[in-house]
């Protein structure tokens, strides 16, 4: 399946990625290749097979409502910058 330029630009915009013209061209090529590869699945006859997103056959896998995680002193992630426990990010302003 061929991915056009607009599709790449749209996905980049949704993912908040700034792509150069070269990046767009490269991604267009690569994404098309990936989708072509996935297209192989279309060769399988799926007549009569209901669509599913699940393979385990499990239903209602729920956990009881109890607090089991302790309060943590430090974030378990490498945030580039923090301030008083909060993660610092580039300014975003709600309209």
């Amino acid at each position: 399946m061929e991915i056009d330029r607009q599709a790449v630009e749209k996905v980049a915009r949704l993912a908040r990625l700034a792509l150069s013209d070269d990046d767009v061209a490269a991604n267009q090529r690569q994404l098309s290749k990936i989708l072509e590869y996935i297209d192989q699945l279309n060769e399988v006859d799926t007549k009569g097979v209901p669509p599913t997103a699940q393979v385990t056959g499990t239903v209602n896998a729920l956990a009881d409502d109890e607090v089991r995680n302790e309060r943590r002193d430090e974030l378990p992630i490498d945030a580039p910058a923090t301030d008083g426990g909060s993660i610092k990010v580039k300014g975003v302003f709600d309209g």
Partner: peptide, 8 residues
């Protein structure tokens, strides 16, 4: 400030 703080 030119940054925002995230509390999860």
């Amino acid at each position: 400030a030119d940054y925002s703080l995230v509390d999860l």
